[in-house]
Amino acid sequence: MDLDTVRTFVAAAEAGQFQEAAAELAVTQQAVSKRIAALERDLGVPLFTRTPRGAELTIDGQAFLPHARELLRVAERASASVRAGRRPLRVDVIASRGAATELMRGFHRAYPEIDLDVVMLFEIETAVAAIRSGAIDASFRAVAAPGRPFPDDIAASRVLDEPLQLLTGPAHALAGAKAVTVAQLAGHRIWMPGIVPGTEWAAYYDDLIAEFGLTIEATGPNFGSDALLDTIADTPSLATFMGGHTRLVWPAGHGLRRIPVTDPTPVYPHSLLWRRDNPHPALATLRAHLAAAAPGHDAVGTWAPDWVIPR
């Protein structure tokens, strides 16, 4: 159905005169008459009765009016859903329980009036392509993997250095420690089935292994964080790394331990990526919020690969 004819019908019905509807729509009275006639032909019924006082709705016109108004409302909502500045701010996070999600929860609490769409894309190439096409407005990515610089139209800002923690079950040899050094981790099996070759986090852990001689195993299927926690709780020989800002919930009987890693503390650098000419007004608000709310970077006593997005 031609929305221009529907819009003209609603304007004429509300004004009661074709001349006033024409003035409202900035068209001629003849154009209004032609549009109404075209709509009446499409519907197969008269919508108005012409009288000396103007135009009155027929019974069919009265029945059609609420549906016509709803058609226009639906069309506006459809347009607003994809119109920059009026549609929700679309932000990509890697995982639902990760640090990026916590940052977005904080942003939503601070600005509840801003509509958000939070999505989860997997590969960094997919996220960058979505940013460039306008499908999303921003993406949280841990690092820029070596040899894969971002295109010139993509901007990036490092917003959070997340310290890694060692997660162990109650019977692990390091379970009683208040903190462990990186050197103490040598020889211990660290199981991380979520490491996928070719991803930016795989590149991060490859460098961590090379720098400190750690044993990180990515064997076996990844059944999610709950299955990982079950295995760590039941297997004294295994531990895993978790981000310090990652939300975890486990049964009380698991007795899991989150242990800080020091000397140095490996940090996982989270950055926000966006297209430089993105016009969405809420994007600037998000960037300002992250700059003000995210913890600062303290390079002293920390480690990150030298190829990550600089501070």
Rank of each mutant, 00 (worst) to 15 (best):
G255I: 10
H172N: 13
T168H: 07
I94G: 12
N222T: 02
M120V: 15
V180L: 03
D263T: 01
L103Q: 13
T231C: 08
V180C: 03
W250Q: 10
D42F: 03
V6M: 05
V143S: 15
D137S: 12
P236C: 07
A293V: 03
V74S: 01
I232P: 09
A155Q: 07
G61P: 00
D137H: 14
Q17R: 14
S225Q: 12
A177D: 10
E211K: 07
R276M: 13
R97Q: 15
H67Q: 06
D137P: 15
A31G: 04
V249S: 15
F122W: 06
A95M: 13
I309D: 02
L228C: 00
M192G: 05
T51G: 09
A22I: 05
A294C: 08
L57W: 02
V119I: 15
E211G: 00
D117C: 09
R41Q: 14
P269H: 06
V118S: 08
P146I: 06
I195Y: 05
T215N: 13
I154Q: 02
D161Q: 01
H188I: 08
V93M: 14
L238E: 15
S157R: 10
P310R: 04
A282F: 10
R53Q: 10
V74A: 07
G198Y: 03
R87Y: 06
L208F: 06
V159N: 02
T285M: 14
A129S: 11
E14R: 12
T101A: 14
P269M: 08
A23L: 07
A288E: 15
Q184A: 11
L65H: 05
P260I: 00
A80V: 02
F48H: 00
A55E: 05
V180N: 03
D42K: 00
Q17I: 07
D207I: 07
R132Y: 09
A78V: 14
L25R: 12
L3G: 05
L3W: 01
D263I: 03
G255A: 08
A227I: 04
G61Q: 00
T199G: 09
G253W: 13
D2Y: 03
L229Q: 11
R97K: 13
I136Q: 09
E162A: 05
V118L: 15
E76F: 01
